[in-house]
Nucleic acid binder design. Structure first.
Lengths: 350, 350
DNA sequence: CTGAAAGCGCTTACAG
DNA sequence: CTGAAAGCGCTTACAG
């Protein structure tokens, strides 16, 4: 079943069939009606290989998702697809492994689909620096800032990670916690070079909040790097509890890791928040189903999705590149305990 | 950058380059080395549109996943991909919306990629009955039985859903529970016609376990249909608790719904398992991180993935179609309370 | 072992 | 408004 069958059956040439299929204007109503009827009758679907191969420019977008199991991204993708559909456009989504190179994948997708534009959900700074220069279509990086990257065709929509982490840390410090264990994502260290990966930014936020309140903070001691998974969070929390028995709270750089930490704390015979307070990051749906409900920094999934799509559309219409910051929301939850009185008492008697 | 560039730079014809790229045997070592060097040097990647368009038969498999957010399937896909790679094959994965037609998607994927075989993760019986006949390549349906479908090119690897649910229900009944609320998936009702969707099979299992133990069971009253999501499970549990205040336990047909129910029970001022016992189904990773750890029927993800792939490979080598049942494991967890004594006492004083 | 050529199923100038 | 034809980047008989 090819376009030829439709042509033969409708009595028109393949070129005319193609024009109808692609909604081109210069086709008589008669031809359009006849051809659409045949398409319907035969259940014809164009072969996208042939279409992509020939087409100089596709009509859809491409969404590249870093991590098929990232629940935050899953939420955002879903909303993006709705928005794209509402805007009368289409999109294909490509999942890339967390450890793979999303920019290489984008380059390949660009060659093969020639999308109008590309949305990246998550991105590794090094990959962008290395290869993004070869990507020439409008792109938007979502959840990660791209302003310091300086590419003329790359916008970004993200949350202020430094401030988000600072507020999460502030929530704990202001509740009287003085020793907070940090579970960070990959490459989460305060390095002397340009700090721009998400985990690094968040760690800086933690540090700022501590400095601002005059609370000592030693990343080397108090923080630990973990894989982005429940299991990773579990293991990390166990190590942290063993290494720093004096911590009264844990801040995980993602909810998924926090959920792992929650279980680790329980398995260590401690309760949340009575013995250990816990804060996550991202605000995925699941935190609201935890017992206790997790305190977290909720990224505005709806806004991230909508603005990501809108900015990409504007950019494809010739608009400027922008770097937008979407407000987050600090969710108090039920997993943080105020221990100020307790600490005061300790100090009085200590 | 096309195969022509590689041909020009290496001094060979495009046909020879193509043969090297596809590992054909009749190429001199000299040509192979030279061409591979150029491919490396230029970073050439073949355009898969052109390849798919031309190729009579592709070399990879295709995995069709029903529900991008289904955590059980996410686990299985990951393991399948590892197995496929270990077997020296490749696979593309296509996600289809829970409400979309996976068989139509497969037909499209078949036309465009001509895979050696297709793995379905999840499937709707009606869709298979309607359209699977048009799909002629070897296929395996994973997690859902396909023996009663009677297609000559469709194997299946699944868990015994009736028995799994019967044991889950048995766990509750044997702990003394007499009124159990059921949260089922779509189209979960004991209908007079052929019952074959997963939820229906599981409901039958519940019924069997009840009959076997002489416990009255009224699906109309005790069971409720929910979307496959935490939110769905939450709402369903709320309704169930309101409608049947005498239930002492809830059985959810998926862990995701059980996690929602867990929160709903807590929000109703009740505890798990002290006031209400809870059992899920599937055995996704997350149940082990719940507080309390969820009791569930754990499907053997590793086996489902491995056997699915192995059977498909055998089938592509001319092997027969098979319908394999993979053993499940009843996980006791911490969410079921034994209330026999309590009930005995009630009865004595009641 | 290698090259030249046909063709996969479309789209798109180019005529008319 | 429509048709005939070129061509997208590959693969694969077919010769040699």
């Amino acid at each position: 079943m090819t376009i030829k069958d439709v042509a033969r059956r409708s009595g028109y040439a393949v070129g005319t069939v193609s024009r109808v299929l692609n909604g081109h204007p210069d086709v008589s109503e008669e031809a359009r009606a006849r051809i659409l009827a045949v398409v319907e009758e035969l259940g014809f679907k164009p072969n996208s290989n042939a279409r992509n191969l020939k087409q100089r420019e596709g009509s859809g977008f491409c969404i590249i998702v870093k991590g098929a199991r990232n629940l935050l991204f899953a939420d955002i993708v879903e909303k993006m697809q709705n928005h794209i559909k509402d805007a009368g456009r289409s999109a294909t989504v490509v999942y890339v492994d967390e450890d793979d190179d999303e920019v290489e994948t984008a380059l390949q997708a660009y060659r093969e689909q020639k999308p109008l534009g590309i949305l990246f959900l998550g991105g590794n700074r090094d990959n962008f620096l290395r290869s993004f220069g070869r990507l020439t279509c409008p792109c938007v990086l979502v959840t990660t800032r791209a302003d310091t990257l300086g590419f003329a065709n790359l916008s970004s929509v993200s949350t202020d990670d430094v401030e988000g982490a600072a507020q999460a840390m502030g929530l704990l410090l202001d509740a009287g916690h003085r020793r907070v264990g940090i579970i960070g994502g990959d490459s989460c260290k305060v390095s002397p070079v340009l700090n721009c990966n998400t985990s690094q930014l968040r760690l800086i936020g933690c540090q700022q909040a501590s400095i601002q309140r005059g609370v000592p903070f030693d990343p080397e001691q108090q923080s630990i790097i973990s894989r982005y998974s429940m299991e990773g969070g579990y293991e990390a929390a166990k190590i942290l509890l063993g290494r720093c028995p004096d911590i009264t709270a844990i801040l995980a750089m993602s909810d998924v890791m926090a959920i792992g930490a929650l279980r680790a704390i329980r398995d260590s015979g401690l309760r949340v928040p009575e013995d250990i307070s816990l804060v996550g990051y991202d605000g995925i749906e699941q935190v609201d189903y935890c017992v206790p409900r997790l305190s977290t920094v909720r990224q505005n999934v709806e806004q991230l999705a909508r603005r990501g799509v809108d900015i990409l559309i504007q950019q494809t219409d010739g608009g400027q590149t922008v770097h937008e910051i979407i407000p987050f929301q600090l969710i108090k939850g039920e997993s943080v305990r105020d221990i100020r009185e307790l600490e005061d008492r300790k100090r009085a008697y200590g």
